[in-house]
Write a protein that binds this DNA or RNA. Structure first.
Lengths: 152, 152
DNA sequence: ATTGAATAGTTCGATTAGTGAACTATTTGG
DNA sequence: CCAAATAGTTCACTAATCGAACTATTCAAT
């Protein structure tokens, strides 16, 4: 990307505008579509616990790059609504293991289906190789950012 | 994208994971980098006013897909900090015209430079055609979403 | 074996962003 | 000219986030 410095505005601004627009719309539509009024953050937390089976507050704080007290707050709301169970780990009693309840799993699966539908309804406008290339580049970017912090 | 329905999870989940990861990191880094503690929302509002010269609360509410009272709140904070001026339109006295103060312009330009630097530091890992293809697809997606609401 | 440091999590008080309903002020159109 | 539409604000509420202070537990080093 030699031309970044010669032509700094155009590509980067196009990228930022697209990113903001897409993210805003996606979040809005997901917010509308998700049953039981799950926020995007709540949805993502259920998603991680669903994928892993269980996890801790510290795991979630690392994944989402927020401090642990933020996780406590969100998790408490989800526990109050019966979507998540908090279980003390008997091996290491400092740990609180988070897992989905049956209700939580069911809610997550409904929400996930809606998200799939929304995204699919957009992806249908692209041909397959375009999508694969796009996602490949996107994942590379996500990887760079996750590894990141080593850049200037 | 015929295979979306046959192979529904993989591509869509990869896309969503990448989207969330990238957005999270980008917002975090922008938040850290922006001077004077501008939040991403505040930055985006200054950005729109900077691009347009001036605008109204209703414009901003439309652009960001939020209700007008949200805009009132953010704008009030930016006015309090001296970044934005509210001017009653004498033609149509219902309108409040928002514009950047000198300070606001200066703060925005500093923040914008940091954002450019952050994005450039990632784009440098890609070759130019890859970036152009990626952004092209991204903009197409953003366009579909903006037009959207007409889908199922 | 004891104790001091690290780790896991919560609580509390603050700020920011967002919503919806009720409100004021102005303009417009039948 | 008056009713409806438009523009914006205020208010009370919720969600997410932060940071500092706190409890409880485990680990490590002497």
């Amino acid at each position: 990307m030699r031309s970044v410095n010669r032509d700094p505005k155009s590509l980067i601004n196009r990228y930022i505008n697209a990113e903001f627009t897409v993210m805003k719309h996606l979040f809005n539509e997901i917010g509308e579509a998700i049953p039981e009024q799950l926020t995007p953050e709540q949805f993502q937390i259920l998603c991680v616990i669903h994928q892993r089976g269980s996890c801790t507050s510290t795991d979630l704080a690392d994944i989402f790059k927020v401090v642990k007290s933020s996780i406590t707050a969100i998790v408490t709301r989800l526990v109050d609504r019966g979507f998540i169970a908090r279980t003390r780990d008997e091996e290491d009693r400092r740990l609180v293991v988070l897992s989905l309840t049956e209700l939580g799993r069911s809610i997550y699966e409904q929400a996930d289906q809606k998200v799939q539908d929304i995204v699919a309804s957009y992806l249908v406008h692209f041909d397959e190789t375009e999508v694969e290339t796009f996602i490949g580049t996107y994942e590379k970017l996500a990887r760079l950012m996750s590894e990141g912090r080593s850049r200037a």
